[in-house]
Amino acid sequence: MRSRIINKISNGFNIRDGKMTFKVRRTLGGPVGFLDPFLLLDEMKIEDPEIYKDGFPPHPHRGFMTLTYMIKGSMEHKDTKGNHGIVTPGSLQLMKAGRGIIHSEIPKPDDITGKCGLLHGYQLWLNLKSSEKMSDPTYLNISSKEIPEIYIDDCYEKKVRVIAGKFKGIEGAIKSLKTIDPLFLDIQLKSNSKISIDLPNSIYNTFIYVVNGKASFGPFENRDQIKEIQHSNIGIFNNDGDKIDVSTSSTDQVRFLLLSAKPIKEPIVLKGSFVMNTQKEIDQAYLDYENGILDK
């Protein structure tokens, strides 16, 4: 088996989109561009409740899916299809916008203190095939306890949460994304650790995002091809290899997200909160929204 190497690293940039009252850090869809079928990756990490209390007011989507994964804090979801859920720490939400949905995402205070503390989470945009873009919207909330957790080698130095795909024979919590066949892992390594992760297919596009700490990524046997990546940075891998090697130093720990998926290989036109295959379809999405029929 051959280990992939990283050919691009970025720490993204801060954006404030639409009516948002706070900034998020964007990597995919920003300086890195698209990584089919991955469109955008935004990190929310805000400590001041006054800044983020209004969250993301109602806004429309069409033609793609959103995956929201929380590390700290909670987000309340409501949409025009009657769906309602709260994404709590360690849990996730998967929403297929399909032909159209209008939803809001608002930080929710802690039930005990009644206050909003640190808000830290990620939202990933996933493309849909042209044949699925005008399909019915769907909503799925997966609690933290539903996500399998594995400790490697009977120790507590390597922890893997299997969100989608398979790892060590364990199937992840998300089972509905057959078209892109994703692998999505949340991995924590203590200092002086090593791990090799098999990928589902050598042609799948693959990246990592470091949540905190830092680690080295690249083949153990070739130090010249190893690259160190630290927190809030994304690393894009080449497509030559079927595994990923990761190591930490004697002083560093790391937590990172690993994502790999089958590319759709169709034209992508992204404007605002709509993702279609042509500009004409984007224009129609805006017209439908203005006429109040986007989510009908």
Rank of each mutant, 00 (worst) to 15 (best):
N239K: 15
S232I: 07
S10D: 07
K45G: 12
F274H: 06
E290N: 15
S104V: 12
Q188C: 13
K265P: 11
L183R: 03
D154C: 13
F220S: 01
N11V: 11
G82E: 02
N291V: 14
L126A: 09
G213S: 13
K129L: 00
S260H: 00
T206I: 13
T68E: 10
V87F: 08
S104C: 13
I187H: 07
T88N: 07
E228S: 09
S191W: 08
F207V: 10
L92Q: 04
R161Q: 11
K108R: 10
T68Y: 01
G29P: 05
G85H: 12
H61K: 08
I46F: 11
K23M: 14
Y69F: 14
H61L: 06
K159L: 02
N233F: 04
I142E: 02
P200H: 07
G218N: 14
S3H: 03
M134S: 11
G55D: 03
V211E: 07
E47W: 09
I150T: 04
I293Y: 14
I163K: 06
I187V: 15
R4P: 02
V160Y: 08
H61Q: 07
K296W: 12
G90Y: 09
H103E: 00
I6F: 10
G12W: 00
G241K: 11
T113W: 01
Y209D: 15
K175E: 05
I9W: 06
F184Q: 07
R255D: 02
P37R: 09
L257K: 09
S143D: 15
N222R: 15
G55T: 10
D252V: 03
F34E: 01
F64D: 08
L67E: 03
I106E: 02
S144I: 04
T138C: 02
G30C: 01
K81H: 12
I163C: 03
K166H: 04
D283S: 03
S3Q: 03
S247D: 14
L287P: 06
N222L: 13
I142T: 00
S130Y: 08
Q253N: 15
M65G: 05
S3P: 02
A285S: 14
T251V: 13
E146N: 12
V32W: 06
T68L: 00
